[in-house]
Simulated assay, not measured.
Amino acid sequence: MMKKLGFSRCEVDTSVFYRRVGKGLIIVLVHVDDCTIAATSISEITMFKCLIAEHVEITDLGELHWLLGIEIKRDRDRRSISLSQHSYLDSIIRRYGFQDLKPVSIPMDTNVRLTSAQCPATTAEYAQMRDIPYHEAVGSLMYAALGTRPDIAFAVQTVSRFSTKPGPAHWEAVKRIFRYLKGTKDLWLVYGGNSKELLGYADADGSMAEDRHAISGYAFILYGGAISWSAKRQEIIALSTTEAEYVAATHAAKEALWLRSLVTEIFDTTLEATTLFSDNQSAIALTKDHQYHARSKHIDVRFHFIRWIVERGSIRLIYCPTDDMVADTFTKALPSAKVKHFAAELGLSLS
């Protein structure tokens, strides 16, 4: 039907449709039976509503204020758009009975190390955890971490690893995330900064976990707010910090290519090289140096994909000091000052 209306389906995201007429552009994002419309003029939106109403029954809810539990606020004077899951966070805090918990300033205690040794081992320990809604609580947190709260992504990734056999220590870590959200539920993810350039940050956890798998983290920021982020356990066991950082940069580069393809196709533009920041000089050198190295010859060829991307000019890998590495918040538990600093860098503010 969208093709009949003159729309093209985006090749890299099939839920996005767009149509260009002269200098005008209209974009339609579809999620099941919900549609979000953005266009260069109100007349384009009005025309689309009339056209689609001829084919299907629609309910016009007017200007966008809510979408999938996310509140959307637009400030035309400041030229900004803000996203919040305040109501959703309130609802899950009440659902699990955490209204009376004391708020904390960090989502994960830097002095606590979660391990499989803390999983239940006796009948009594299993009985203690039997009625604890661990899976449901972690699942509820995941929606917030994926939606508007990148600052809890690492903590949620960590507690989710123990979903099969959670212990009391793991449940306390989950409750701590809720306590953090209770104190920061008024934060909005704000877009509207002066920088129009797409910037990326890639980092890896230098201190390996008990299974020796490092954590890769990345974040991409546009107009002052994070548009894509990830905290993910690496599938390989890296033999050095350089290798872990190199793998993390490769994962970030793949996301950068997708974002570049999305922007290029919809807006019919040509982008300059996307800046990707890394805080490891050796990993940066490895992306540019194709010589034989005894310490890197074992790295799987698929992770050398980033070399071709850098050589082609799609990605520009730049060194960034660790204190300014935004992706650091996706790889480890941090003290309060850094949590607040990186949250602000990701675009989270009281709006």
Rank of each mutant, 00 (worst) to 15 (best):
H304T: 12
A209E: 09
V30D: 12
Y88I: 04
L61V: 13
G224L: 12
L276R: 02
S80P: 00
F17P: 04
K288E: 14
D279L: 10
V32L: 12
M47E: 07
Y88R: 01
F48Q: 01
F17D: 04
E210I: 03
W171N: 13
E125F: 07
T241E: 05
A127N: 15
R312P: 07
V28E: 00
M325S: 03
H213F: 01
Y180K: 07
E235L: 10
K165R: 10
T241S: 09
D323V: 08
S41A: 09
P107H: 03
K332G: 01
E245Q: 03
A283Y: 02
D205P: 03
H31G: 09
V56G: 10
P166V: 04
D131F: 06
S349V: 05
S240N: 06
A249S: 05
H304L: 10
H293V: 14
I27Y: 04
K288R: 08
T264R: 08
S140T: 14
A252V: 02
H213M: 01
A337G: 14
K3M: 13
L276P: 02
G24Y: 10
I318T: 08
A39S: 07
S336E: 09
M208E: 11
H86Y: 15
F154H: 09
V30S: 11
A285L: 10
L25Y: 11
L271S: 10
T274N: 03
Q234A: 06
C35L: 06
I27Q: 05
G167E: 05
D90Q: 11
K185N: 14
R260H: 05
M1F: 06
I215R: 12
G139V: 01
P321N: 15
Q128N: 13
D109Q: 12
E57Q: 05
S240K: 11
L286A: 05
G69N: 00
S228W: 08
Q291C: 08
V190H: 00
Y96L: 01
L29K: 02
R94E: 14
L5P: 00
E272L: 06
K175N: 15
C320P: 04
F303W: 12
L51F: 01
F303T: 03
H86S: 12
S195T: 15
A155E: 05
G225H: 02
I221N: 00
I70Q: 01
G200V: 01
A173I: 06
I215C: 07
E44V: 11
T274P: 03
E136S: 11
C50H: 14
L89H: 13
R94M: 14
R307I: 13
G217Y: 00
K4V: 15
I26M: 02
S87C: 10
P120G: 10
I45R: 07
I92L: 05
G22S: 06
W66Q: 08
F267Y: 12
A144G: 12
A117T: 08
A244C: 10
